[in-house]
Amino acid sequence: MIELAVFDMAGTTIEEHGAVYEALRHAVEATGVTVDPADLQTWMGTDKREAIAALVRIGGGTPDADLVERQYEVFRTYLKRRYEEVPPEPIAHADKTFDELRARGVKIALTTGFSADVALPLLASLGWSAEEGGNLDAVVTADEVRRGRPAPYMIHRAMEKCGVFDVRTVLVAGDTVVDLEAGTHAGAGVVVGVLTGQLTREQLEAHPHTHVVDSVADVPGLPEASAS
């Protein structure tokens, strides 16, 4: 039986209609480089400043610290506008998944490649919170740790916040390759790919995992998540 379920946000528990993909591409291409869609997908789910630096470099640019910070602000402004135009909403049955797992004694944490200044207003717009009385037990943003995904640090930070000691009792779920890599690097007992993002089953199954499911709605039905 798992003690902690760690879910990604955009594309896994939150439907944001491709806004992050668009905003990241816009921020990078505004520097004058071209972004290959495959490279962009590779960096989805990672810390957004790290993604901007890497994609500018891949495109032949020179991503010094000032440029990265400027383009992060471009990313943030573009994303805010897109969220105002088409508000994000919970992935179907995400709330029910949280409630079912918590009713079994499983703690719920969200991790994200966003920094807190983006992630927390997004969660507030959905009525989600890790505050007392909220529907979450922890939120970990990319700026809380030394490195974002595929490093395991956000998962370990979620364990710390939730008081979970044994990583083998942790389930990690996400829609990108770096979600699966982070879960594997962390040593999580259950690593789940979900198909509500941009990747196909075949693309996710090419990387270490224990399960690939249609959506987070399927997580409570996994054997490891069943009530003991």
Rank of each mutant, 00 (worst) to 15 (best):
residue 36 D to L: 08
residue 51 A to D: 02
residue 92 A to K: 15
residue 226 S to V: 02
residue 106 V to P: 01
residue 134 G to M: 01
residue 122 L to K: 11
residue 48 K to Q: 00
residue 189 G to A: 04
residue 226 S to Q: 15
residue 114 F to Q: 11
residue 183 G to N: 04
residue 124 A to I: 05
residue 187 G to D: 00
residue 113 G to I: 11
residue 42 T to A: 15
residue 11 G to K: 10
residue 197 G to P: 03
residue 203 Q to W: 11
residue 98 F to T: 12
residue 57 R to G: 03
residue 76 R to K: 14
residue 185 H to L: 08
residue 83 Y to E: 04
residue 147 R to N: 14
residue 75 F to H: 05
residue 71 Q to G: 03
residue 19 A to M: 09
residue 133 G to F: 00
residue 55 L to D: 00
residue 194 V to P: 09
residue 95 D to N: 05
residue 10 A to R: 04
residue 101 L to Y: 13
residue 74 V to C: 04
residue 128 W to K: 00
residue 6 V to P: 08
residue 81 R to I: 09
residue 34 T to F: 11
residue 54 A to Q: 03
residue 65 A to D: 13
residue 20 V to Q: 01
residue 34 T to D: 00
residue 83 Y to K: 00
residue 61 G to V: 08
residue 200 T to K: 12
residue 144 E to G: 11
residue 225 A to Q: 09
residue 164 V to K: 07
residue 172 V to D: 06
residue 94 A to P: 10
residue 103 A to N: 13
residue 154 M to I: 08
residue 53 A to N: 02
residue 198 Q to G: 04
residue 151 A to V: 02
residue 144 E to S: 06
residue 209 H to C: 13
residue 184 T to M: 08
residue 187 G to S: 04
residue 73 E to R: 14
residue 184 T to D: 08
residue 78 Y to T: 14
residue 220 P to M: 12
residue 104 R to W: 14
residue 20 V to A: 06
residue 207 H to R: 12
residue 158 A to E: 02
residue 141 T to I: 05
residue 180 L to W: 00
residue 52 I to A: 01
residue 216 V to I: 14
residue 66 D to H: 15
residue 178 V to I: 04
residue 101 L to D: 14
residue 189 G to W: 00
residue 7 F to S: 03
residue 112 T to V: 05
residue 135 N to R: 03
residue 188 A to Y: 01
residue 40 L to R: 10
residue 10 A to C: 13
residue 209 H to G: 07
residue 33 V to F: 01
residue 20 V to T: 09
residue 187 G to T: 02
residue 191 V to S: 03
residue 194 V to I: 12
residue 12 T to S: 07
residue 72 Y to M: 06
residue 133 G to N: 10
residue 63 P to I: 12
residue 177 V to N: 07
residue 89 E to Q: 06
residue 107 K to E: 06
residue 118 V to R: 01
residue 42 T to P: 00
